[in-house]
Structure formats: structure tokens, C-alpha cells
Design a protein around this nucleic acid. Structure first.
Length: 944
RNA sequence: AGGACUAUAGCUCAGUUGGUUAGAGCGCUACCUUGACAUGGUAGAGGUCCCCAGUUCGAAUCUGGGUAGUCCUACCA
């Protein structure tokens, strides 16, 4: 083995082997265990959030596979409607071609081509992360099977009255020309203006002043509203306004929606272009006047509708100079015209929330269109109950509140999108606008008894990508077919996801699954039993990672490393806002002056696990991953030591029992049991941070720091018996092998690599560590006596090291040690551990003194009552030793004062449990005796 | 505006049902290339557990109130 750990040399080859041998597939034996991957965008690439998410899922999956479960990690991708169509359209536009030039079919061919070209990216990255997904079952939301499921669900929901088509005000993205759902709209504070306009009264008796942030919508105003309680305006209610520019006569109405304290107390009402105004308009039966086309340019002729069946009438023309004008140009023009008419009262700066499309970044326009909706109220009810009664549990629990608050106030879900890339809506229209829903045109004709003379046309729109994602747990398992996989793996066990898609995905998945999947007794089947919600991965400053901030890290770059120039180039290329490039470059050069080292997948995954405390975001710090890369190196080098001492030697793995265990062997075996128990418990309770910590502590601070050192006096001692040496080799190799299995779910590659090297020595013969059983800690094997012994030994050694450190005695210099005043047990322990002690503390000799014996002037350490004396002859600086002891006495006295205070408090002695009181008493006695001994020693030093 | 979460060492974070002498890693200081490992070893420094009040014999931990930050939901033209 190389002297240092080189992750790049071992990782990819093992993944290939595992995959080729089919180890990722369900074994077919044992209790089923299933995790569904949150499908990433097929044409996208993985970011740190995916890395985090996958580290957790793979840890769970590998753990359960090793526990003998019939384990399936279902993998796949989604088609990401808007995002993907956007990319392809952008590529086309670079060649001066629009999708309309190509036509629907040709355009879709282009998208499929793009998918074929870029789709491998994601799957390649998943492999680099070591994710043990079953590739043979990979699914894509637009596969025929999944598309059938989507169609089936749509038709059934329609037939049950749970899907309907309607004209509504929707969030319209003028850039992509499609409706989007509420969730896809991001509203953030932006600086804008509040324009105050004078609206003249029809009777010429004056005017009202209305305030607006969106002057361009005034062309569609159909009323001015005031608070019914507002004395200033009460007398005007019922009168009319002459709307400037258009000349339209509109009423002044009273409505509680208006807040008389805000602005002027008068609100222009534009029911076709504002969600609140829409509601006001509905209450007062106002007309809806739509002034925009699909690109948010002013129409030549407005569409005028009524709330009564949305009957529309024609004839309302736009003022000529506005026809075809883009909305923000129209805004300027209106403000200018109002000003020239003397109707602009004032302009105030104003901060407002501007709704933008999360993909396009364009300002979203409330726009009146025909769309398809899922009626969610009935679907939400059982989905809420499933979480209320604990059939589905969120980890951490507080996310249940987030879920409830959204579900209990859920809005109908707009599922149609005016895109081409996606599942086309299975609805057909005749020439009279009647709608027919079915699996295909033939079915529609027979279902609705339509003759061949009726011409039918399919709806042009597609479904929201999340509509297909909502079916993910069962569609990927073959539904609507009743497949064996569906029967075996559904409901799935755990869903691992970020909180940001609880509404988008988790909630909708619960609703859809419970509606369509039923248990044998007809009760709804849940999609998963546990939802593990993890935090966001942020940069080292705690900032959200985003392309525009230029602070994104690619998990692959942490694995392979990247030099500074390449990182800068990566972060500043293809930017939406190129003006930020310079700033990003500067910041990147500062933070990553030496680029990023290659840390390897195992270190990355272990880092994610170590930071995965429940319910909090993680700040990703290079220091952490470096530390865990070093941890890998530690394991690597511990292995080299073990091999050096065990290779070609009898390690008692042939079933022989002619070996003997030292107290150190029995101690490390005890510690191993406890660690195995702790790691398994931590994984099962989703505390990956605790699992990684327990492992790290055991491997580094127990096995490497102590046990390997304790093995040396045995293995390197010419006079030690062969049976003891054999027992030590056996322990060395067996504990190492258990460590590897215990670490494997979190660090798959290094553990496999080493395991393959040492499995023979450890008496194992499997093909892969990933198919070996996860270690089961047996607390009954804990040898309390051995543990006490080694703890005693550690204390003695630490005491001696402390003296060496403070007295500046080089480790290489042998010292003589005297022991005094201990118990019989101490004496016994000294004999048991003499060999270990002599070597580890580099002692000349260790002698037991009679209690009454006079000791030479010494430096002292205490372990319990036992004194450890290091004679000073020429070694020790009296002043330094006095200072050292005084410091310790001070510290102890401070603690004693506190404990004494406690014990002198009658309240404590009377009310606290007896065992707690006794503990304090013992503590005080110990400290007091220690202080006594130390003071004695100080006095002795002072005599000189 | 409503709600959730967070606040512990210079930094990143643990701290399980109140019983602590408050821990880890990184960083820092000093020393050390000894035969697994300098991606290392040994020793050390470093904390008003955000603030205030309360409950309790006892609070980092529970309650109330504040402060700061993060996020979600709803938004007033």
C-alpha cells in the first residue's frame, strides 16, 4: 500500500465493479427497504445539495443492505418542463431559430436530442458520489410507463370531478408564455415608485386621488374603491369617475378591502390584472377588462368579460398610441400623459414586493386565461390525517407544522403549462369548445359517443412537471400495472429531501399516492413512512449558494480538486449578470487562493454526515472536509501498520483457539461493542452527525492512539509468548475489519479497498464489503475489568506525559518512576500493565514504594489516591514543578468551594436524590485528598 | 403582520428525560521527524453557554419577556 491515501486511485474502479456485478439491485431476501431518489432534472447537474442528499440516502441504503434487507434505491430523473425547454430554446435562438419556426414535433425532437446529449451528466455524477442506486430500474418522468401513469391519473381525476378546467386569474410568465403555480413565483422587495393620480369625478365636482405602483394597468380599471367607513369619501360612493386617457365611466364603490389609513384611501380596481382587485370585482360584479396580450403588450382591442360565466364582449378599443406597447414602456407613456393632463399629483419612492418567475426572472403578470386545475381540498384531507395520526412522520418534527399550515389552507393547483415539453393534456375539444377527456382520441369518441363527423383537437398544453413527480413513488414501481415491485416496496420507507420542496413535491406526493394506492382493506396507502428533512448547504459565510452570487461549489470539484484558474473560469462563465464577474473573481481568488485540493468522495460524504445534525442548514467549510480526508489517511495508515504486523502471520482466523488476549485486546474489543451499538443507533435515528462522530472517536482516539500503541509492546517483545502475539494480531485485524464494515455506509470506497486487502487475514471471504453484515455490538461482551485497567493505564501515562511536558523532559529520555500509597488494586494494575507502561511512557523502571518509605524529591502526579513520583535528580526545575502543582491545586480548590457550597445548602441535601448527594460527597472527598497530597508535595519542594 | 428555527471556544458544530469539573474538529502556542501516519505525535492556552426575569435544592438545558440573525407564509393599492 502507498504511504499516503490517494482517493483518486481507488474510487471509480470500485463503483464500476459494484455496478457490473449487480450489487445495487434488491437481493430478493429479507424485509424490504426502499428509498426513492428525489428526481433531479435530467439535463441539469448536481450541486452540493444533491451531494448532501445523496450522502444521507446512500448511508441509509448501504446500512440497510448490510443489515440484510431486500433493499431498493429507486433512481431516475424528471423532465423539468420549463427549465429544459428554456435551455433548448436558448440554443435555438443562438442560431436565429424559434420553436415556432420548427413546429411542435421538430422542436420536441430537438429536446430529446438535448436530453440524450446532456442526460448522462447527472447519472455520471451520481456514480462519482458512490450512490448505490439500482441503475437497472432507472426511470424518467417521460418514459412510456410513467407517461401512462400520468395519463391514467389525469383521466381518473377528471372523471371523478377532481380536475376541472376554468378561466381564472393565473400567474403568467410573459417571457415563457405560460402559467405557473403560486409556488413558482418568488416575491422579493424591490425599489419602485408609488404614483398618485387624480381621477376626475363625472359631475365635474372635483377628483379623487388614487395611488398605484402599476400605472399601466389603469387602462383596465373598472372602479375606484373606498372604505365604507371612510367619512371623507362616503358621500361619493355611487358617483362615477371619468377614467383618464380611456374616457371610460367607472363607479366609485365601497369595499372593506380598502384600508383607509393607507395611501389616499382610494384604490383603483383592475379585476383582470390583480388578485385582490379580482375578488373586489367579483363582489361588486364589475366587468373584467383585460388589456394585455400573452407577451404583456397592450392589446389593440381589450377583452371585456363579466363574472357571470366570463361572457366576453368586444369593441372596447385601446387608445391608439398604446396599441402593441410593451408593459413597462406603456407605464412610462401613461405617467407622461397623466402629467401632461395635469393629473399626476406626485411620485413617491416605494418599496414593494415584485413577483418574479423562479425560472425566467421576469415580472409575473396576473392574467386571465383558461387553465386546468386539481381540486385539492378533498385530496388534502386524508393527506393531513396521515401525518396527524403518525402514519407518516417528519424528521425533525417541526416540519409537520409547516406541512399542516400549507395543507389546511391549500389552493387549487394549476397544472396546465403553455409549453411543448412535457405530458400533453389528454383532453380534446370539438368545434364548439366542448371538452372531452380520455386516454386517446378513440377512447374519447367511444366514451362520449362522438361520431366521425365531429372533428376533435387535442389540448395544446402540457402538465406541470410536479404533476408527474407527484406520482413518483408508485409510477416508478410500475403502476398502473400491479407489479411485484409495487407490492414489495410500496409504501417506501424514507423520503430524504430538503424542506424547500415540501410543498412542491412531498405534499402533492402524499395526496396523489393516497388517492390512487390502496391497501387490501381499501384504506389509502401512504407513499413513505418517514420524511427526513435536511437543511440547505450554504457557503462558509452562511450565504446560500447561487450561480449569480458566484459562490457555488461543485461536489465533483471537491472530490477531484480544481485549480484556481479553472474554478474562477467556471464561476464566471455563462452568467446571467456578467457585470458581477469581476467581484466573483476577486472573492474566489481570496477564498481559494490555492484552488481546491482533491479530497475524494469518502471525505466529502463523511463531511456531509458529520454536519447532518437534524433541522439545520450546513455551512460548508473546507477545514471540515480536509479534516476528514486526514481521517481517511489515518485509517489507511493504521491499516499499513496492521498489515506490517499481520501479513503472512497466523492471525488465528483458521478457527484455532490457541491464542491469548491481553488486557488491551479485551479493552479494545469492549470499546468496539459500544461503538458499534452507538453507530447503529445513530443511523437508525437519523443522527448521521453522531454516527460519524462515534466512529471517528473510536478509530482515531481509541484504536489508533491507544490500541495500536499497546500492541507494540506485545508484538515487538522477543520474550512475549506466541499465544499472546497471536491474540494481538487476531484483535488488530478483527477490529480493523469491523471498523471498515461500520464505516462503509458513510465511506464506501476506502473501506472496500482496504477490506479487499485484509479480508483474508480477517478470515472473511465475501466478494464485497457492501454485502457483508453490518457489525452488531454485543454489550454483553464488554469486559469491565479490562476497561478499568486500561483507563487506569491511560491516566498514569497521561500523568507522566504531563510531567514530561511541563518539565521539558524529552520523550526520548528514559525516566524512573515510583508509585506509592495506592490500593491493592493499583498494585495489581501496575503489574498487569507494567509492560505497556514501561514502553508507552518510556520508563527506565517502575517501582512500588512502601507507603511509609521516604521518596526522593520528585515531580508528582495522582491517579486516585495513588501517587506517581518522578525523581527529580537533575531533571526537574523546582520552580516549574511548584508552579505546576499550585495551578492544579487552585483549580481543584475552586471546584471544591462550589461543591462545598452545594453540600452546605440544606435544600440540596434534603431534596436532591440521595445518589446525587452521595456523588457530590464522594467528589469532594476525592478532591480534598488530592489537594492534600499536592500541598504536601509543594511543602516538600519549599523545604529546599 | 403571523409563524418556525437558530444564538455554546477565534471558526464550524455536539451537548440525549434539568444533576458538568460544558465537549469535538479546525485554527492558535510550545516541543517532537520514534520503526503506521507531519494528511502525524505530545502538551497547552482559549467559554458571562446572547440579555433579563422566573420555576427549582440545582438551569447551557424548562417557562416568560427582550435582542440579533436565518427562513417560511400572507401581504396595502
Amino acid at each position: 500500500m502507498d504511504k499516503t491515501y490517494q482517493p483518486s486511485a481507488i474510487e471509480t474502479q470500485w463503483y464500476k465493479t459494484w455496478e457490473e456485478k449487480g450489487y445495487f439491485k434488491p437481493s430478493g431476501d429479507g424485509a424490504p427497504y426502499c428509498i426513492m431518489i428525489p428526481p433531479p432534472n435530467v439535463t441539469g447537474s448536481l450541486h452540493m445539495g444533491h451531494g448532501f442528499n445523496n450522502a444521507i440516502m446512500d448511508t441509509l441504503v448501504r446500512y440497510h443492505r448490510m443489515k440484510g434487507h431486500n433493499t431498493l434505491w429507486q433512481v431516475g430523473t424528471d423532465h423539468a418542463g420549463i427549465a429544459t425547454q428554456m435551455v433548448v430554446e436558448r440554443q435555438l435562438s443562438a442560431q436565429g431559430v424559434s420553436r415556432h419556426d420548427l413546429g411542435r414535433e421538430n422542436f420536441l425532437d430537438k429536446v430529446w436530442e438535448w436530453k440524450a446529449e446532456s442526460g448522462g451528466n447527472i447519472t455520471r455524477q451520481l456514480r462519482r458520489l458512490g450512490s448505490s442506486v439500482d441503475w437497472s430500474r432507472e426511470r424518467f418522468t417521460m418514459d412510456p410507463g410513467l407517461s401512462d401513469a400520468v395519463q391514467e391519473v389525469f383521466v381518473r381525476l377528471y372523471d371523478e370531478g377532481l380536475i376541472y378546467r376554468g378561466k381564472r386569474l393565473v400567474n403568467w410568465d410573459p417571457k415563457f408564455n405560460t402559467a405557473i403555480s403560486d409556488l413558482e413565483v418568488i416575491s422579493e422587495d424591490e425599489q419602485g415608485s408609488m404614483w398618485h393620480f387624480r381621477y376626475p369625478l363625472e359631475d365635474g365636482s372635483g377628483h379623487l386621488v388614487v395611488a398605484t405602483t402599476r400605472p399601466e394597468t389603469m387602462l383596465g380599471d373598472t372602479a375606484v374603491a373606498v372604505d365604507p367607513e371612510d367619512e371623507r369619501y362616503q358621500h361619493l360612493v355611487g358617483k362615477n369617475i371619468v377614467l383618464p386617457i380611456t374616457g371610460r365611466i367607472i363607479p366609485i364603490i365601497a369595499d372593506e378591502y380598502v384600508d383607509k389609513e393607507f395611501g389616499t384611501g382610494c384604490v383603483k380596481i383592475t379585476p383582470a390584472h390583480d388578485f385582490n382587485d379580482y375578488e373586489v370585482g367579483k363582489r361588486h360584479n364589475l366587468p373584467l377588462i383585460n388589456v394585455f396580450d400573452r407577451n404583456a403588450h397592450i392589446l389593440g382591442e381589450f377583452t371585456v368579460l363579466t363574472f357571470d360565466g366570463y361572457e366576453s364582449s368586444h369593441g372596447e378599443k385601446a387608445p391608439e398610441s398604446y396599441v402593441g406597447v410593451e408593459r413597462f414602456a406603456a407605464r412610462k407613456q401613461i405617467v407622461a400623459e397623466m402629467e401632461s393632463l395635469g393629473l399626476l399629483e406626485k411620485i413617491e419612492p416605494h418599496t414593494l414586493k415584485v413577483p418574479r418567475g423562479d425560472r425566467s426572472g421576469d415580472v409575473i403578470e396576473p392574467w386571465l386565461t383558461d387553465q386546468w386545475y386539481v381540486k385539492t381540498a378533498d385530496l388534502a384531507k386524508p393527506a393531513i390525517e396521515a401525518v396527524e395520526d403518525g402514519r407518516i412522520q417528519f424528521v425533525p418534527k417541526q416540519y409537520e407544522n409547516m406541512y399542516f399550515s400549507w395543507m389546511r389552507d391549500i389552493q387549487d393547483w394549476c397544472i396546465s403549462r403553455q409549453l411543448w415539453w412535457g405530458h400533453r393534456i389528454p383532453a380534446w375539444y370539438d368545434n364548439h369548445g366542448n371538452v372531452y377527456v380520455g386516454r386517446d382520441e378513440a377512447e374519447v369518441r367511444s366514451k362520449y359517443s362522438l361520431g366521425d363527423d365531429v372533428s376533435l383537437q387535442q389540448d395544446d398544453d402540457v402538465l406541470d412537471t410536479w404533476f408527474s413527480s407527484a406520482l413518483w413513488t408508485f409510477s416508478t414501481l410500475g403502476w398502473p400495472e400491479q407489479t411485484p415491485e409495487l407490492k414489495t416496496f410500496h409504501p417506501t420507507d424514507v423520503l430524504v429531501t430538503g424542506f424547500d420542496i415540501i410543498f412542491f413535491w412531498v405534499a402533492r406526493m402524499i395526496m396523489m399516492t393516497m388517492h390512487f394506492m390502496k391497501n387490501e382493506d381499501g384504506t389509502p396507502q401512504i407513499p413513505f413512512k418517514t420524511v427526513y428533512v435536511h437543511g440547505l448547504v450554504r457557503d462558509s459565510q452562511g450565504q446560500k449558494m447561487s450561480k449569480s452570487k458566484g459562490n457555488v461549489l461543485d461536489p465533483i470539484d471537491l472530490i477531484d480538486g480544481i485549480d484556481l484558474e479553472a474554478l474562477v473560469a467556471k464561476r464566471t462563465s455563462g452568467m446571467m449578470q456578467p457585470q458581477l464577474a469581476q467581484k466573483i473573481e476577486k472573492q474566489t481568488r481570496k477564498e481559494f487562493a490555492d484552488g481546491i485540493a482533491a479530497y475524494g468522495t469518502d471525505a466529502l460524504r463523511f463531511t456531509f454526515c458529520s454536519l447532518a445534525a437534524t433541522g439545520r442548514d450546513i455551512k460548508f467549510d473546507l477545514g471540515r472536509i480536509e479534516g476528514y480526508r486526514n481521517f481517511c489517511n489515518k485509517i489507511w495508515n493504521a491499516t499499513r501498520y496492521v498489515l506490517m504486523n499481520c501479513e503472512d502471520q497466523d492471525c488465528a482466523q483458521d478457527g484455532s483457539d490457541d491464542f491469548e488476549l491481553t488486557v488491551a485486546d479485551r479493552w479494545i474489543i469492549s470499546q468496539l461493542q459500544e461503538t458499534e451499538t452507538a453507530v447503529a443507533h445513530a443511523i437508525e435515528t437519523f443522527r448521521f452527525d453522531l454516527a460519524s462522530q462515534a466512529l471517528y472517536e473510536f478509530v482515531w482516539n481509541q484504536y489508533c492512539d491507544w490500541y495500536l500503541e499497546l500492541s507494540k509492546p506485545v508484538l515487538w517483545d522477543e520474550s512475549a509468548s506466541e499465544t499472546l502475539k497471536k491474540g494481538t494480531r487476531r484483535t488488530l485485524i478483527r477490529v480493523l475489519e469491523a471498523i471498515l464494515r461500520m464505516a462503509h455506509p458513510m465511506m464506501p470506497f476506502i473501506t472496500e479497498e482496504i477490506w479487499q486487502t485484509i479480508k483474508g487475514l480477517a478470515g472473511k471471504s465475501g466478494d464485497s464489503i457492501m454485502l457483508q453484515p453490518f457489525p452488531r455490538g454485543e454489550l454483553g461482551k464488554v469486559d469491565a475489568e479490562a476497561v478499568e485497567n486500561i483507563e487506569w493505564l491511560k491516566h498514569v501515562i497521561v500523568g507522566l506525559r504531563n510531567i514530561r511536558g511541563e518539565m521539558k523532559i524529552a520523550d526520548s529520555r528514559k525516566i524512573t518512576t515510583l508509585f506509592r500509597n495506592g490500593s491493592a488494586a493499583d498494585q495489581q494494575r501496575l503489574e498487569t500493565n507494567r509492560q505497556f507502561l514501561t514502553r508507552l511512557a518510556n520508563l527506565e523502571e517502575a517501582t512500588w514504594l512502601e507507603a511509609s518509605a521516604e521518596a526522593p524529591l520528585s515531580a508528582t502526579a495522582l491517579v486516585g489516591d495513588m501517587e506517581i513520583l518522578v525523581p527529580m535528580a537533575g531533571l526537574i526545575d523546582v520552580a516549574a514543578e511548584t508552579a505546576r502543582l499550585t495551578k492544579e491545586i487552585d483549580k481543584l480548590q475552586k471546584d471544591m468551594a462550589r461543591v462545598e457550597g452545594k453540600l452546605n445548602n440544606p435544600g440540596f441535601v434534603d431534596k436532591a436524590p440521595a445518589e446525587v448527594v452521595q456523588k457530590e460527597k464522594d467528589k469532594l472527598a476525592d478532591m480534598s485528598s488530592t489537594v492534600g497530597k499536592l500541598e504536601e508535595q509543594v511543602a516538600k519542594l519549599a523545604e529546599l
